[in-house]
């Protein structure tokens, strides 16, 4: 999914629950419908958390990748 162009990047490296979710929510609010947010986290719990959060809020989790200790999420705003 690296061909997806992100409109905004959010660095949540080193942050623990629930900060990646709270920051993602804040960031997505500044975007327009259809825009894509790229979020990078190091919290292993963020995979399940981002899946749950997108499911609940209706934003679309386009992809998530693991590279080393990092988790990269692409989210399209509802």
């Amino acid at each position: 999914m690296s061909d997806v162009q992100a409109n905004m990047e959010l660095d949540c490296r080193g942050l623990n629950c629930p900060l990646p979710i709270l920051k993602t929510k804040k960031a997505i609010e500044t975007l327009n419908t259809g825009d894509v947010l790229k979020m990078v986290a190091t919290d292993p719990g963020s995979i399940n958390d981002m899946t749950a959060w997108t499911k609940r809020t209706g934003n679309e989790l386009l992809s998530h990748e693991e590279s080393g200790d990092e988790y990269v999420f692409f989210i399209r705003k509802k």
């Binding site: 629930p18 979710i21 709270l22 993602t24 929510k25 749950a52 959060w53 609940r56 809020t57």
Partner: peptide
Amino acid sequence: FILASTAVAMD
């Protein structure tokens, strides 16, 4: 506070 802030982030 964790649950409340996260719940609000989940609308």
